[in-house]
Design a protein around this nucleic acid. Structure first.
Length: 292
DNA sequence: CTCCGTGCCTGTGAGC
DNA sequence: TGCTCACAGGCACGGA
């Protein structure tokens, strides 16, 4: 293992995008490599307020001594499956991230929890804004966990053109951006990838879902898959080495075509990218390529 | 049904 | 220089 810590969320700084499906997927792949088969020797909760539905004491009781068998993702949720069948659900929200350290290093300013692992490594959960949440589920509770049931994850097998079409037909008067952001419909899309997918599909973010042409729906389906896959593969490349990652900032930014590019020229037509608010969120689009 | 505002948080940066 | 304040946004929730 590397001497330096592995930042499981490569994004840094206050202006950094919130982790969405591709970022969480990359984090999960790293976590799986680091944690699978390892026993949690001790747990320290610096901010117990992030726990949902369980006390700090019970949480530690149920986690300490358990072996992590696998780490999985669904939507933006991370799941640590434990040997006896229970599983820990983590949502990073805005600023949550995991840092894997080879030794027992002290908690930083934003460290909210520390897990000490068999072998001496430790896993820190850092979260500047304290929005992140931990929830512990019992064995067999998979069917009760909304995080595992609601919405369709775009990377799941069952997410196909028909399913996407049904989602749109169910909410015809909803603006397409709101629909893509709705985790009950599609699990994993956030503000960035939504804007990027809509730009690539040439669809105005405020357009009603029910008014999309067949061709637009087809393009949007394809573009959702494309931007998510591209996001994952770019992250994947950056993840190979901590120092490469740290020095190589900007690679991810270069891939974004509209997000936070207000007043910059559209890469397709040269028009100035606009910013508006849709679904209460900053929304970037090309007024020429994405006509209302 | 859909939208909108509020709360949860803290760091950043613009404006004065 | 130092202060205030808007802003960033995932999600839950209440109200229009």
């Amino acid at each position: 293992m590397e001497k330096t810590g592995i930042i499981c969320n490569p994004m840094k700084g206050a202006n950094t995008p919130v982790p969405e499906l591709p970022e969480v997927e990359c984090i999960v792949r790293s976590l799986r490599r680091c944690l699978a088969g390892k026993r949690i020797m001790e747990g320290q909760l610096i901010s117990p307020a992030m726990l949902r539905g369980i006390t700090e004491e019970r949480f530690r009781e149920r986690l300490v001594g358990k072996i992590v068998t696998d780490v999985k993702r669904r939507g933006k949720y991370i799941f640590f499956f434990l040997h006896e069948g229970s599983f820990l659900e983590v949502h990073l929200r805005m600023t949550g991230r995991f840092v894997y350290l080879p030794g027992d290093s002290g908690a930083g300013r934003h460290t909210r929890a520390v897990f000490f692992l068999q072998g001496g490594e430790s896993l820190h959960f850092e979260d500047m804004r304290k929005f992140g949440t931990f929830r512990l589920w019992h064995k067999g509770e998979e069917a009760n966990a909304a995080s595992l049931q609601r919405g369709v994850d775009p990377l799941e097998e069952r997410f196909d053109r028909d399913v996407f079409d049904k989602i749109l037909k169910k909410r015809p008067r909803c603006r397409i951006k709101s629909l893509l952001l709705d985790q009950e419909s599609i699990a994993g899309m956030g503000n960035i990838y939504t804007d990027e997918a809509l730009f690539r599909a040439g669809i105005y973010p405020g357009k009603k879902a029910g008014s999309l042409e067949k061709e637009e729906k087809e393009r949007l389906f394809q573009c959702i898959c494309t931007v998510l896959q591209e996001g994952i593969s770019k992250r994947g490349v950056s993840f190979s080495d901590y120092r490469d990652l740290w020095g190589g900032e900007g690679e991810y930014q270069d891939c974004l075509r509209v997000y936070r590019r207000r007043d910059k020229p559209c890469l397709l037509c040269g028009a100035s990218i606009s910013r508006t608010v849709v679904a209460g969120r900053g929304t970037y689009y090309c007024p020429e390529c994405q006509k209302a």
